[in-house]
Design a protein around this nucleic acid. Sequence first.
DNA 1: ATTCATTATAGATAATTATCTATAGATACG
DNA 2: CGTATCTATAGATAATTATCTATAATGAAT
Lengths: 322, 322
Amino acid sequence: MNSRHLTFRLLQVYAAVVGAGSVSEAARRLHLTQPTVSQQLKRLAETVGEPLLESRQGRLAPTEAGAELYRASREVLGRFDDFGDYLEALRGGERGRFSIALVNTAQYVLPRLLGPYSQAFPEVDVTVHIGNRRHMLTRFERQEDDLYVFSHPPSLAHAVAGRFLRNPLVAVAPRDHPLAGRERVAMSELLGERMLLREPGSATRMLFDSWLQEQGLTLGPTLQMASNEAIRVGVASGMGLAVLSEHVLPSEHPDLVILPVAGLPLESHWQFIVRRDRRLSHAALGFLRFAEGHLGECVESRFLCNELAGLLGRLEVADAAS
Amino acid sequence: MNSRHLTFRLLQVYAAVVGAGSVSEAARRLHLTQPTVSQQLKRLAETVGEPLLESRQGRLAPTEAGAELYRASREVLGRFDDFGDYLEALRGGERGRFSIALVNTAQYVLPRLLGPYSQAFPEVDVTVHIGNRRHMLTRFERQEDDLYVFSHPPSLAHAVAGRFLRNPLVAVAPRDHPLAGRERVAMSELLGERMLLREPGSATRMLFDSWLQEQGLTLGPTLQMASNEAIRVGVASGMGLAVLSEHVLPSEHPDLVILPVAGLPLESHWQFIVRRDRRLSHAALGFLRFAEGHLGECVESRFLCNELAGLLGRLEVADAAS
DNA sequence: ATTCATTATAGATAATTATCTATAGATACG
DNA sequence: CGTATCTATAGATAATTATCTATAATGAAT
């Protein structure tokens, strides 16, 4: 039997004929003419090399070989129906996988979105990569992930971005610091103190540095630490002051106060970045849609800044074009 | 996804590409050119409506959808391979079904063949129909069975026959009968006795009647019984004499003797009859082949008369022609 | 940056398929 | 024994498929 030229259509027709027990009836059901169906059957029988049907008391009944072919056809057609369902689920973003890469600081907020999303789409595998900005930039260049979260995106030449969350940088001091009770503080007053800072190249540090430069200020004594957590704890224990993303602070922070420094908070935003030269998985798109729709429920409203509709719009356009 | 124009060939090609991890390599394995394979893939991806492969570090790896399609393809192709095996078994006569219709008297001998055959081909379903000659003729007319066993076949206009077993008709008497010890008996001597006979129309009776007519003899008193068994027992218990197929007698028959009547035994033969206007099932053909090859082992050599090779020859010719 | 291998595209062609209409041959029903 | 209903065959045609050669575009590896 040479299955080279066997089409699924042929099996569909055959199954219909066996199901109907009649060529004419099958033709009606399939909206074909009877000779068409007859001829298909003939070809199928030739392909199989064995008679498939014989008329028994008025009805067409499958022969031994025909019965087995019918079984096989049903299984095969069923399997491809399942495949069709799978595809639909994939397209609907209900199933599949995607990966998302975060710079360190974003790990304080992204779980608020990913948690509810995973609840809603349990069939989607999400891989989260976390690292410092340099690390993430490498991944971005290599197109290793579906989605990236940056506060300061790299070049958008091959990518589109959509902001979704405010990321205010605030100055923090220990609660018992002399400046703690003040109505208003000038930045210059802080710079005499030792500042605890993230490494150069981290988004937080970059933003702070460039702001200082604008203001014509220069740093005094500093202490560099690679982790936001370590900085927060350091400040609480009196090692110095710091400028940190507000998200890094726990909602209750008895040891720390936010200083009302003029010009702060520094406004920046978390945004999703999507490369345009890599096909975005349906699942990732589904996640963005979910974020667009449910952001309000997942984050405190003072941080809310949902500009994802625009991002989605630009993606759909690209999608339709392809 | 429209599977209307999906060919098995296409799935084979796709599976080969995924297996090889490269279009060119797959093309080599399939003895096709690389553009051919590329183009098939393109068409397949269009049919599915989703990219199937993406190049990951030099190799082609299936996408999510592609991986599922690969699974489906393997299953489907596997299922049809199995179907191919099934067909082969069917063609080889190792599997399937057939029915065989016997006139009553043949039931004494056919099990000797059917038993060993079923042992050798346990996957074949055999249906045996047994009845009197009239009954079998009806079945034969209606083409209800694959094989028929007659000693006197009906018209062979639409059928072919092959003898396989001698069927001698002998005269039997109770052991204590006056004629029992005699060296030689004339038929006319028997006709004074009461004869136990099968019904007119039965092969045994027809043969006996026409022989008597040839000899110019006529029957004396008779008693008609529809069963060979009943006749045999009747003779043993002194109800009269009879002319019976030797196969009807048990191998040891202490109550009966075979009379050495001049002109007896009447020679007739069991033969297989196959209609030519009905497709012979592979299994039935397999049975005939088995019979042809193993007849010697299944029946006593004095009855042996294997002319099945001729029958098979005629069937193969018809088969090749169709 | 050059080169080698891989993949994609274009253009061509023969074969095959999917369908139809019209018609002939079979079968079953009253 | 017609008649209605089925199935099979023939002939036609447009669409699709399978396959090639030649060539361009990509991409990985010196």
